[in-house]
Design a binder for these strands. Structure first.
Lengths: 149, 149
DNA sequence: CAAATATCAGATTTACTGAGATCG
DNA sequence: CCGATCTCAGTACATCTGATATTT
């Protein structure tokens, strides 16, 4: 194995990250998508599914199932938009806000586990470098730029 | 989207990396596995499939198909080990050495595309940070430590 | 009629799990 | 009998493609 081949390092570490997220979220009956969606809804308010997809980077095709799951848990409500009958407006419920806090805590624990061997400075370096790559490749592909924090 | 959530940044950039590798290798009828296997064989000589799996991090279940593909192209030969009849010894052919050079060139181009927005120093930083993470998590999981370059 | 929205069905890639057969 | 090796079949997850229906 060539430990200096960046594409390999990236996909391998991502595999561990995916496992940490999947397992960590599954332990509380959740998925990574749930955290992303509830966070987005709490931060910027109710939205159509298409809007949520643009905010969170989740594909429209996968949005249906994810919103179904959240709705089944009582964490969001899906109601038709009276102003535009194509749209569903997705809104967080009080239970959803509680759930969002729970998922945020869990997400934090997962990051800690993922980045355990790195110092705070190194973690900042890593996120900076990855952000640069991601912004570049999204633009390269004609994707709409992400809303920057 | 929380652009500072490392697990998300990691899996997203890895998705782009995977696409670059898959597409870039498919253009010359290859896969990432082929490059990894031929490189390992050229560097450390013939090996059993189980050994190759340990060297390259490729799962034993996926090794069969990968070696089949390389053998079909005439790049490796699979012969039973007379000393241990459980084993197949995989050996590179001259055509395989030529192929390895071709794949190495292509791999380099792919890395360049992947890391385009980063300076040389930043690239070194990134590989260093990812290596640290990977070594940590492999050890954490009881995996055999990787042979370090 | 073009574009946006929501839904559904399915393909793709990497990685992994489990089962079997054979051999040491 | 345990353990290693090889093979095959199938799973899991995230992502993306394509098709359809509805509405703007």
């Amino acid at each position: 194995v060539d430990l200096t081949l960046p594409s390999w390092l990236l996909t391998q570490t991502a595999a561990y990250a995916t496992r940490l997220v999947t397992d960590g979220m599954a332990a509380i009956d959740a998925r990574g998508y749930h955290y992303r969606l509830l966070s987005a809804l709490e931060k910027d308010g109710p939205a159509s599914q298409a809007d949520l997809g643009r905010r969170t980077g989740i594909h429209l095709s996968d949005m249906v199932a994810a919103v179904n799951e959240l709705a089944a848990g009582g964490y969001v409500e899906r109601s038709p938009d009276p102003a535009d009958k194509r749209r569903n407006v997705v809104t967080v419920t009080p239970a959803g806000r509680e759930r969002a806090r729970q998922l945020a805590v869990r997400a934090g624990e997962i990051q800690e586990e993922l980045l355990a061997p790195l110092t705070a400075a190194e973690r900042a370096q890593l996120t900076g470098l990855l952000s640069t790559l991601l912004v570049h490749h999204r633009a390269q592909q004609g994707n709409p730029p992400l809303p920057m924090p």
